[in-house]
Amino acid sequence: MNDETSQSQEARDVEQATWFECDDGWGALIAELETRLKALSPDYTISQVKEKFGGLRYYANAGDVNAETSKRFYDLIHEAETKSFEICECCGQPGQLSRRGKHGWYKTLCPKCAASMNFEPVRDAGSGTS
């Protein structure tokens, strides 16, 4: 690889990294999602990938596709976002929604990562009680 190609690849890597604002534990989930999205719409674009309220948020545009493909595209994103609540954001092991403090930060974590970060499992996420 020549210097110009190397610099171009590094610039793309830096640009892509700015889209991702979550820990590495969801890497396999995101990689699988991207493979499936690319199969539906090879030219799709990513706006942002982040953690919010303990779950994955994946913002992308399907591009110029028909309505059926567009629906499937966004259904795949929704499925991955839902799965993220069962995967530790830090290490990728099975996890559950956890919270630091009564009204604190939410993250989906395995018991080991939760303990090391002073998070506790949210007992009943649906009712708002712990």
Rank of each mutant, 00 (worst) to 15 (best):
R36A: 12
Q48N: 10
P94L: 04
R100Q: 14
Y44N: 11
C88Q: 05
V65L: 05
A39F: 06
R99Q: 15
L109K: 07
E51S: 13
A125E: 11
V65N: 08
Y44Q: 07
G101F: 06
K107M: 11
W19Y: 15
Q96S: 14
E79V: 14
F119K: 04
A114G: 08
R72T: 15
D24K: 14
H78C: 10
I30R: 02
S116M: 11
R99F: 01
R72V: 12
C90N: 15
E68F: 07
A60C: 01
T69P: 02
T18D: 09
K50P: 10
V122T: 02
A80D: 06
R99E: 01
A62P: 11
I87V: 13
A125Y: 14
K50V: 10
E34K: 14
P111D: 01
G54T: 04
G27C: 03
T82R: 09
G27I: 00
W19Q: 09
L29W: 03
Y106D: 10
T69N: 08
K71W: 08
Q96N: 07
V122E: 05
R72S: 15
E21K: 15
A67P: 02
G95R: 00
P42V: 01
R123V: 09
R123S: 14
M117F: 05
T35Q: 15
T45L: 12
E81P: 09
M117K: 14
L29Q: 07
S70P: 01
E79N: 12
A31P: 00
C90T: 13
D43G: 13
T45R: 13
G54D: 03
A80P: 02
D24I: 14
F85P: 04
C88D: 07
I46V: 15
S84Q: 03
Y59E: 11
A31V: 10
E21F: 11
T35L: 03
L29D: 04
D75R: 14
L97Q: 08
L97F: 02
A114K: 01
P111I: 00
I77W: 07
L29H: 03
S70A: 14
C88Y: 04
A114F: 02
G63W: 06
C113K: 04
S41K: 06
N66Q: 10
I77A: 05
K112C: 01
Y106H: 11
A39N: 06
Y106E: 12
K71H: 14
S47H: 15
S41V: 03
R100C: 09
G101D: 07
L97A: 06
N61M: 07
F73G: 11
Y74F: 15
A125L: 00
Y44W: 09
V122M: 06
E81W: 00
C113Q: 06
Y74C: 01
E120G: 11
C110H: 09
D64N: 15
A60F: 05
I87L: 02
E81G: 10
E86T: 12
Y74V: 10
G25P: 01
G63R: 04
K38G: 11
Q48Y: 06
L33D: 02
C110D: 06
G25E: 03
E89N: 08
C113R: 04
Q96M: 13
W26N: 07
P121C: 06
S116N: 14
E15W: 11
E32A: 13
S41E: 07
Y106P: 01
E51K: 07
L33K: 01
D75P: 02
K38Y: 05
F73L: 11
C90F: 08
D24Q: 05
A17M: 10
W105Y: 13
S41L: 12
P42K: 00
L76T: 09
